[in-house]
Simulated scan of single mutants.
Amino acid sequence: MTDATMRPAPLVDPFGRAVTYLRVSVTDRCDFRCVYCMAEDMSFLPKAEVLSLEEIDRLCTAFVKLGTRKLRLTGGEPLVRRDIMNLITSLGRHVKAGDLDELTLTTNGSMLFKYAEGLVDAGVKRINVSLDTLDPHKFQAITRWGKFGKVAEGIQAAKNAGLAVKINAVALKGVNDDEFHRMVEWCGERGFDLTFIEVMPLGDLGDVSRLDQYIPLTQVRAELETRWTLEDTDYRTGGPARYVRVKETGCRVGFITPLTHNFCESCNRVRLTCTGTLYMCLGQEDAADLRTPLRLSDDNGLLIDAVRAAIQRKPKGHDFIIDRNRHGAAVSRHMSVTGG
């Protein structure tokens, strides 16, 4: 029997979409409190409910054996988890063996000054950094607890270490909508790609209304086209962004549009939380418990059965809507739980 015939069958959902991309929230904790993501007074999970790094490694490895080709670590903020580099270094073995195309992470950048070189050594080639403004005062207002200078230092450390950096910016009406041109320019000067993201209705934000925050990215693109030449491209990273090339800078700008134009028809992603809960769709509540089968046996048979059963419940798409009648949370959990 060849190695190929011994491999488990790949994961395919009821709509014929191959599931090859796993996003893993390694912690729900974060050192920021961004206004579109969290309430300021957040309650986090008891540590006893959180998977150990060894358990996360085992879960990720099981997915790799089932055909996962891209693995993204998220949070909360992944780099605030104690000993996180042990997990990243361990998972890097799958990249080095050729079983995983990419190991990457999304970070707020606050800890990159400390970990950038270690990420490269572990096999990470590119990262996404969430950065919604270039104004230090606005930055502190958006993140509540963040310091722009520390993040800027971290981004420079990542570039110096050889990591490809992509900036993710949530478009926020009345907050950063006067900075979109500057962000394209700033990223172009540094050789960074940039992705704009529509506000997503996840989690209760207290007194904050998402209708007051929401800008459709069709409007953002139209504004950018008043200054920049945007050339359509087929470039993809395996995620939901649709990219254009900015002729003047040579860099790319992506648009993630869960509200104005959802990307569900090509969805290849599932999301694992730090408690071992698998969400088959970011915008739906249905989820599968993988922690129980993981802990019931040292053998992965029960775990793989649970994963396959979950994938058969993956829905066709989400139902995100923000308008005057529906501007609250579409689902109750905060973005930090599933990591975007």
Results as ranks from 00 to 15, higher is better:
residue 106 T to S: 15
residue 100 L to R: 04
residue 125 K to C: 12
residue 100 L to W: 02
residue 124 V to Y: 07
residue 106 T to R: 02
residue 105 L to Y: 08
residue 115 Y to C: 02
residue 114 K to A: 12
residue 102 E to L: 13
residue 115 Y to F: 13
residue 96 K to W: 08
residue 116 A to E: 05
residue 106 T to Q: 08
residue 116 A to G: 08
residue 112 L to C: 03
residue 110 S to F: 10
residue 113 F to C: 12
residue 112 L to A: 03
residue 123 G to N: 00
residue 126 R to L: 05
residue 121 D to Q: 13
residue 108 N to T: 02
residue 102 E to R: 10
residue 108 N to I: 01
residue 116 A to N: 07
residue 126 R to F: 06
residue 95 V to H: 10
residue 105 L to P: 09
residue 103 L to V: 09
residue 124 V to E: 13
residue 111 M to S: 07
residue 102 E to Y: 05
residue 100 L to G: 10
residue 104 T to R: 03
residue 110 S to H: 10
residue 109 G to H: 12
residue 104 T to I: 08
residue 113 F to H: 13
residue 114 K to S: 04
residue 124 V to C: 14
residue 110 S to P: 08
residue 125 K to H: 12
residue 110 S to C: 13
residue 102 E to S: 11
residue 97 A to Q: 15
residue 111 M to A: 08
residue 105 L to G: 11
residue 107 T to L: 00
residue 110 S to Y: 05
residue 121 D to W: 01
residue 103 L to I: 08
residue 99 D to F: 03
residue 110 S to K: 04
residue 121 D to V: 05
residue 105 L to S: 09
residue 121 D to P: 01
residue 115 Y to P: 02
residue 108 N to G: 13
residue 117 E to Y: 05
residue 122 A to Y: 02
residue 119 L to D: 07
residue 98 G to S: 12
residue 123 G to L: 00
residue 113 F to I: 11
residue 123 G to P: 02
residue 96 K to C: 01
residue 97 A to L: 15
residue 109 G to N: 13
residue 117 E to L: 07
residue 108 N to P: 10
residue 105 L to C: 12
residue 113 F to G: 14
residue 125 K to I: 10
residue 109 G to A: 15
residue 109 G to M: 14
residue 119 L to R: 06
residue 120 V to R: 12
residue 113 F to V: 12
residue 113 F to N: 12
residue 114 K to I: 01
residue 100 L to H: 06
residue 125 K to L: 15
residue 106 T to M: 04
residue 102 E to Q: 12
residue 125 K to Y: 06
residue 105 L to A: 10
residue 95 V to P: 11
residue 118 G to Q: 10
residue 114 K to P: 00
residue 102 E to N: 09
residue 108 N to R: 01
residue 95 V to F: 11
residue 114 K to T: 06
residue 118 G to S: 05
residue 120 V to H: 05
residue 112 L to R: 13
residue 122 A to L: 05
residue 115 Y to H: 12
residue 108 N to M: 08
residue 97 A to G: 14
residue 123 G to W: 00
residue 125 K to G: 11
residue 101 D to E: 15
residue 110 S to T: 15
residue 102 E to T: 13
residue 99 D to I: 01
residue 107 T to C: 00
